Simulated scan of single mutants.
Amino acid sequence: MENITSLSDKRREKQINYERSILKDLTLTQLKTKAYECFGVFMHSGKFDYSAIEDGCIDFSIEAYLLGASYSRFGFFGETMQTVNARSRREEKLLVDQLFDYMLIWGNPGENDFKNESIYYACEFLIHLWWSEGFEKGEKRLKLRLH
């Protein structure tokens, strides 16, 4: 007797395989380096525990990378990166807000509004950086027919 699989199961399996293949281009060293570039300056202030937030930065960076890679098909079909980014702006903003909340909880930045604003811009920069990187890698894989 044959197993009956649903269309949603097949789609999910295809998505997982795509994510595995796209993540092969990404290294942990790259993720840690970019996270340190964005948030290392806050560590030197003395009140920011970088070791507590590094794992979260890596997780959110991977999510942003995968989001950009999933939207790269629009770039492959002729849209510019800016128009595709506008298309995914809501999901990217959600990642930025979640990373910022994570920073406020685990990073212990205090009540300084100026510092909190700086942290938000650093979160925004990190997410957009990895979104762009994922977009470019995904588009390259599509052009090379590696999808």
Rank of each mutant, 00 (worst) to 15 (best):
K93G: 10
E2W: 10
L28E: 01
S6I: 07
F39I: 00
N3I: 11
L7Q: 11
L7C: 10
D49S: 01
T80D: 13
C38F: 02
G75H: 15
E111V: 04
D59G: 00
F74W: 14
G46R: 08
F76T: 05
R20W: 12
L26H: 03
C38Q: 08
E92S: 14
G110M: 10
A35P: 01
V84M: 14
R11H: 09
G46C: 05
S51D: 02
A52R: 08
K34E: 03
E63L: 04
L99K: 10
Y102H: 13
I62M: 01
D113P: 00
V96S: 05
G110T: 07
E2F: 12
K93F: 12
S61K: 05
V96G: 06
F76D: 09
D97A: 14
I4Q: 01
E2H: 11
C57T: 07
F76G: 09
K14L: 06
I105T: 11
E37Y: 04
N85Y: 15
S61P: 04
K34Y: 04
G107T: 08
R90G: 09
K10S: 10
S45E: 06
G68E: 08
R87P: 12
S72D: 12
F42I: 01
K10D: 12
L95P: 13
E2Q: 13
T80Q: 12
Y102P: 07
Y50C: 03
F60R: 04
E2K: 12
L94C: 11
S45T: 05
N112K: 08
T33S: 07
L26V: 07
F48E: 00
K14I: 02
M81N: 14
D9M: 09
N112F: 08
D25F: 06
K34N: 02
F42S: 03
R20D: 15
S70M: 11
E19V: 01
N17V: 06
G68P: 08
Y65F: 10
H44S: 01
Q30R: 05
K115C: 03
K24Q: 11
K34M: 02
G56Y: 04
I22Q: 02
A69Q: 03
Y50L: 06
E111H: 12
I58K: 04
V84W: 09
E54N: 07
L67S: 03
Y50P: 00
K47D: 12
F42T: 00
L94A: 13
F77W: 08
K24W: 05
Y18I: 04
L95N: 11
L26K: 05
I16N: 08
M81G: 15
E19F: 07
M81S: 15
F76A: 10
F100S: 05
S70Q: 11
D55C: 06
F60E: 06
I105P: 03
L31H: 08
L94M: 14
Y36G: 02
